[in-house]
């Protein structure tokens, strides 16, 4: 599992670079690096379905970000400036929240199983009944389209809403001054 740790370190370094760099195009490329590292980690934890979706979605995400940046500006003017009062306040609040959040995370990690020992209480039923009840050999497809199909319908509604939002915000009619 040493390669998993290497990719985690790579992902964290790329994330820090993406938040702190001055050039926005470089920040988006670092975002793409994080996404591809996540995709490779999905392969390493035996989730090929997720890896396929993550790679293609990551390509489209980078394309959309670059399209937006090329139309506007690619210099982040706010990086080198002095901190203002509200910004210092937000950093202090962030530190406060981080401490609270870490306490909660530490407590909830006591309940989680160790890495590599999933409990599989519900999943064993799905694996046992997947092939006899649905006939599909891909258990993930069985879960999203048969056992939990209503969940998928809800997600499709969310996608529809976001598409409607983008198309409505980008229309030209009714924008005359």
């Amino acid at each position: 599992m040493i390669e998993l740790y290497l990719f985690l370190i790579f992902m964290l370094i790329a994330a820090i670079i993406a938040t702190e760099i001055k050039d926005l195009l470089a920040a988006v490329i670092s975002l793409g690096a994080v996404g591809f590292a996540v995709a490779i980690m999905f392969i390493l934890v035996q989730a090929p379905d997720l890896a396929i979706v993550q790679i293609v979605v990551e390509v489209l995400t980078v394309v959309i970000f670059v399209a937006v940046i090329l139309r506007t500006t690619h210099i982040d003017e706010t990086i080198g400036k002095k901190l203002k009062g509200t910004q210092i306040l937000s950093i202090v609040l962030y530190a406060f929240f981080t401490i609270l959040f870490l306490i909660v995370v530490f407590r909830s990690f006591q309940e989680l199983p160790e890495f590599g020992n999933a409990t599989m209480k519900v999943a064993s039923e799905y694996i046992k009944l997947g092939l006899p009840q649905t006939g599909g050999t891909n258990i993930v497809a069985d879960v999203i389209l048969d056992f939990r199909a209503l969940d998928t319908l809800g997600e499709a509604t969310v996608l529809f809403t976001s598409v409607i939002g983008v198309v409505a915000l980008m229309r030209k009619v009714g924008r005359k001054k």
């Binding site: 090929p48 379905d49 890896a51 396929i52 979706v53 293609v56 979605v57 390509v59 489209l60 394309v63 006939g135 599909g136 050999t137 891909n138 993930v140 497809a141 069985d142 999203i144 389209l145």
Partner: peptide, 21 residues
Amino acid sequence: HGHLTPGGGFAGGVIVAGAFV
């Protein structure tokens, strides 16, 4: 082949959209 091998409607749809893009 979404019900037999990894993949399915979500992955395949995004790949086809990527071809058009």
